[in-house]
Computed example of a mutant assay.
Amino acid sequence: MKKGWKTVVSGILTVGALALLGACGSGNTADSGSASGDEPRVVKLGVVGESNEAWEHVQKELKENENIDLEIVKFTDYRAPITSLEDGSIDMHSTLTEIFMDNVNEEGGFSNTTIAYTSLNPLGIFSNKIGDISELEDGATVAIPNDVSNESRALLLLQTAGLIELDEAAGLMPSVNDVTANPKNLQFEILDANQTIRALDDVDIACVNNNVAVDAGYIPTETAIYLEPVAESSQPYYNVIAVREDEKDEEIYQTIVDYYQTDEVKEIIAEVTKGSSVPVW
């Protein structure tokens, strides 16, 4: 504007300018996540399996109260949510044990980071052929998951059940190579985690992840012939809510955690899993 230029503003222009300023002052930001009529903030949550009643409850509550559109993205294997979070396909995931996630992080150089815990889902030993662990015969076949952390967890469970002994030096991450005593000469069938329950007709026993068993229609507390005990040593097997490391302090993710960690969600977990999953917050 040139110096000395006299500005003449008509009444019409004044009204128009004020209206324009008013429009600019009511800007619409998707990041606000408020319930004031703005566009909802979309957050993609990765899960594994079909039984997601707790998160479906949270999804509804967030939409109604916070204008957050929680999109539940289902995967069929445990590594996929980790790599999908890393490449930005999803924003967070809630389906994995911390020990499994940390192991995959280390292998791949990933930054998946725990921001909260959800539940402990005890691993179980299942069978279509025997009703008690004491009935297991010599030379029996045992299906165990093939990923490092779940294989280790299964072997530790078999040790707790008195079926094998493991090298103490292996700590929480033993493999079949660390079996130091196998009095029943058990034969190990190492399968993808979601295939262990499907192998029950072909093996004598199977070590099955809790959510895999529930998705297949089993109630671990009622149908497992041996269930992983819950103790202080169980913490590495707590399931987590995770995001990328550089987003761990984002307020919207803490809001989602707050809506999950409620008494209502505890009741849903208890009802859906028949008490097989234990909330740990």
Rank of each mutant, 00 (worst) to 15 (best):
M1W: 07
K2M: 04
W5D: 12
K6H: 04
V8Y: 11
S10P: 01
S10T: 14
I12A: 14
V15L: 11
G16M: 05
G16S: 09
L20Q: 01
L21Y: 04
G25H: 00
N28E: 05
T29F: 01
T29V: 00
A30M: 05
D31A: 13
S34F: 01
A35F: 02
S36V: 03
V42Q: 09
K44S: 05
V48I: 05
S51K: 11
N52C: 00
N52R: 12
L62W: 08
E64D: 10
N67I: 01
I68P: 08
L70M: 04
L70E: 09
E71D: 14
I72T: 09
K74D: 03
F75A: 06
F75D: 06
D77L: 00
I82P: 00
T83Y: 02
S84C: 03
L85C: 03
G88C: 03
M92V: 02
S94I: 00
T95Q: 04
T95V: 12
T95I: 03
L96N: 15
T97Y: 01
F100G: 06
M101N: 12
E106Q: 15
E106M: 14
E107G: 03
E107H: 02
E107T: 08
G109T: 09
G109Y: 07
T113I: 01
A116F: 10
P122G: 11
P122A: 09
L123R: 13
I125T: 04
N128R: 13
N128D: 13
I130A: 07
I130W: 05
I130V: 14
D132P: 14
E135F: 03
L136T: 11
D138T: 15
G139W: 08
A140T: 11
A143G: 14
N146S: 15
V148Y: 11
V148P: 08
L156Y: 07
L157W: 10
L158C: 08
L158H: 06
T160E: 11
I164S: 10
E168K: 15
E168F: 03
A169N: 14
P174K: 13
S175H: 06
S175R: 11
S175G: 14
N177S: 15
D178Y: 07
T180D: 07
T180I: 14
P183Y: 07
L186M: 07
F188Q: 06
F188D: 04
I190N: 01
Q195G: 02
I197L: 01
A199N: 09
D202M: 02
V203H: 03
C207F: 01
V212Q: 06
A216N: 10
A216T: 07
Y218I: 08
T221A: 15
A231M: 13
A231H: 12
E232Q: 14
E232C: 02
Q235C: 00
Q235M: 08
Q235A: 14
Y237H: 13
Y238L: 01
I241Q: 10
A242D: 06
V243G: 03
R244F: 00
R244G: 12
E250W: 00
Q254K: 14
Q254M: 05
T255C: 04
I256W: 04
Y259G: 04
Y259W: 07
Y260T: 09
I269R: 09
S277Y: 07
P279V: 13
V280C: 09
